[in-house]
Measured scan of single mutants.
Amino acid sequence: MAAAAAAGAGPEMVRGQVFDVGPRYTNLSYIGEGAYGMVCSAYDNVNKVRVAIKKISPFEHQTYCQRTLREIKILLRFRHENIIGINDIIRAPTIEQMKDVYIVQDLMETDLYKLLKTQHLSNDHICYFLYQILRGLKYIHSANVLHRDLKPSNLLLNTTCDLKICDFGLARVADPDHDHTGFLTEYVATRWYRAPEIMLNSKGYTKSIDIWSVGCILAEMLSNRPIFPGKHYLDQLNHILGILGSPSQEDLNCIINLKARNYLLSLPHKNKVPWNRLFPNADSKALDLLDKMLTFNPHKRIEVEQALAHPYLEQYYDPSDEPIAEAPFKFDMELDDLPKEKLKELIFEETARFQPGYRS
């Protein structure tokens, strides 16, 4: 834990890192770190609560700039109880001085990944967590956004079992017609939660990839272990087919990539493993919904509104309290091709509203 900075004593240090967030945020305490930044909790002297502050230093890398800009653009436009918001952003007053960006968010005690390492969940908890994931996802999908990296560590939890989806750095506007060349190379989302079509096709992607990830998360809540822990690309596919069985001819016809289709045709026939054999203690309604989410063919996979209306979630289902976005989200430009200098300018502009004396 960093010592509390005395008023006016300059930035606090946390594990050798400068955290320049005073005077409003003090009493910093280390939480963890990701690929390009550290997260601390801090005391907000204005709202009198502890908050989470993520320090991001992305400006050396085009990919990190892209992810940072995506996350900020999306989260500043989203407003939903099951999606983490941005409360404040701290950065230098000029673009030349801006080396880091500090993002202030609600402090959540833990995440689903940490929880599943230590606790076996009751059916009631599984049901409530799944409902909140789908409630947040309904809003995301209504904005025409794909999260693309749903996994237990991106689901934040607090002691009252509130759940918030975080990390929109890989999110995209849904565009089933656009052929994202190089899709697989830039697709760094965790393999275990990846839909089979991501490994088999490169053309376009749809909201059904997020539903697949939610199915993987439900299976993990039922058993405290990942359902498809593939060691590499082909191993991942083999794990999936080992449980779902061989795809039907109709399902194979959806695979545009001939090499991928021929690979699947070359494999020995596998039978589907019954879900109640894998999860003998699970609620039968939970397994019915799991089956509809972990469907090989993305066109037959359940959609988020149908999933919310499934009998497993009937005690929570309330369409009048499951809000959607006001308007579909649009990125003005494809960020993939922009140089990091341009992305830095866009991050600077996007964060201006939090600067003292800002006038829109």
Rank of each mutant, 00 (worst) to 15 (best):
F19P: 02
D20F: 08
V21M: 02
R24G: 10
T26V: 08
L28I: 07
Y30S: 07
Y36N: 00
V39W: 04
A42V: 10
Y43W: 12
D44W: 14
N45H: 12
V46N: 15
V46K: 14
N47A: 06
N47M: 06
K48A: 08
V49H: 11
A52H: 10
S57N: 13
S57Y: 00
F59R: 12
F59I: 00
E60F: 15
C65D: 06
T68P: 00
E71H: 10
K73W: 07
L76E: 11
R77H: 12
R79D: 12
E81L: 11
I83T: 14
I83E: 09
I84W: 04
I84Y: 06
I84A: 13
N87V: 15
A92H: 15
I95P: 14
M98L: 02
K99C: 09
V101Q: 06
V101Y: 03
Y102K: 08
Q105A: 09
T110M: 09
L112G: 11
L115R: 13
L116A: 07
T118Q: 10
H120I: 14
Y128S: 08
Y128Q: 06
F129M: 10
Q132N: 09
Q132P: 02
I133E: 06
L134A: 05
L134D: 03
L134K: 04
R135Q: 12
L137Y: 06
I140M: 07
N144F: 09
V145P: 05
R148D: 03
D149H: 04
L150V: 12
K151T: 02
K151V: 02
N154F: 03
L157H: 09
L157G: 07
L157C: 10
T160H: 08
T160F: 07
C161V: 10
D162W: 15
G169H: 07
G169K: 05
A171Y: 06
D177M: 09
D179V: 00
D179W: 10
G182F: 05
L184V: 04
L184E: 01
T185L: 04
T185C: 02
Y187I: 09
I198V: 03
L200P: 03
N201Y: 01
K203N: 01
K207Q: 03
I209F: 00
I211T: 05
S213A: 11
L218F: 05
M221D: 02
M221L: 00
L222P: 02
S223T: 01
P226T: 01
I227Y: 06
L244G: 04
G245C: 00
P247L: 03
S248D: 12
S248I: 12
Q249A: 08
E250N: 15
L252C: 09
I255H: 10
N257H: 08
N257P: 11
N257G: 08
L258Y: 10
A260Y: 08
R261H: 08
N262R: 11
L267T: 10
L267R: 13
K270W: 11
V273T: 15
L278D: 07
A282S: 02
D283M: 14
S284Y: 13
S284G: 12
A286F: 14
A286D: 02
L287S: 04
L287H: 10
D291K: 07
N297R: 04
K300A: 11
I302K: 04
E303D: 01
E305S: 14
A307P: 03
A309L: 07
P311I: 13
E314W: 15
Y316S: 15
Y317P: 14
D318E: 02
D318K: 14
D321Q: 12
D321G: 07
P323S: 05
I324C: 13
L335H: 12
L335W: 05
E341Y: 15
E349N: 15
T351H: 14
A352V: 02
F354N: 08
Q355D: 10
Q355I: 14
Q355R: 07
Y358S: 07
Y358G: 11
